[in-house]
Amino acid sequence: MTWDYIFVQVANGAVIGIIYALIAVGVTLIFSILKIVNFAHGDLYMLGGYCAYYFIALLGAPPLLAMLLSMATLFALAIVLERLLLTPLYSDATERKDEYGLIITFGLAFFLRNIAVIIFGPYPLKPPSFIPGVQHIGEMTVTNDRLFAGGVGIVLILALLYFMHRTIWGQALDAVSQSRESAAIVGINSRRFNSVAFGIGAALAAAAGALIAPIFSLAPDMGVLPNIHAFVIVILGGMGSVLGSIFAGILLGEAENLFTAFFPDPTRALAYTNAFGLLILMVVLIVRPQGFFGRRHLRME
């Protein structure tokens, strides 16, 4: 095993980690505002990838524009879904909201995954590259698409952080996540921010889907594993912590790639990589359920 190989694995791990983080910050944002874990998040990511693909294939949009359009589409779609399905969560008449949120998002995931098979077909699709070609850095080779995905991913995460910490809407979101009542007292319409949070989460997932599409391909069930990975990250980073998700995302991407590289039996390495991530998830849930960056007021009772 050469150092170059390990370098390539580290670089790939970082890119995948950033993509994971992009999905996971959506889950954590939605959790901190709506207090539900979105089991359909991986399927929004899948839809985002397909949306970008069709903007390229049918409208001839440049890939980057297609990604932005796909984000906008998913933002709108998510708000529609949230209005249709999640409003009972805000009513006091609804009992056991945890259970309601779980089953409704689980059912939504089931619906989206299966309708995607019909609309998009079961065969994998591959959109064109953002920037074709590869980069040679020393001895190692990294495709431009991976670098581009990593770069855009970082920009989006920075934009989200800016939005959360430096704009009035971001501050309002934070206020709603801390206390719905207090936010209402200072005049924040918390209902609107439920929609905004769900929409932003979906838009980020869509970006991740569009970015990953040229690297892997699009398939209706592509969202299943990233969804579980997003849970691993969110649990690791602490529910409701955006920064925690970013750290944990990159950590998980690296850990998995190095696990694949060093696993003694190469024929099984890939299969057990996913199990490895899940094992981390289970151990963290047992040992430290609030995660490592969790914010106390968001801990789920």
């Binding site: 779980l102 649990i235 199990a275 899940l278």
Partner: peptide
Amino acid sequence: TGPYLAIFTLGFSEI
């Protein structure tokens, strides 16, 4: 409770 249990058992079942 709630979603944590669901995620934990989902992890178990996938493993």
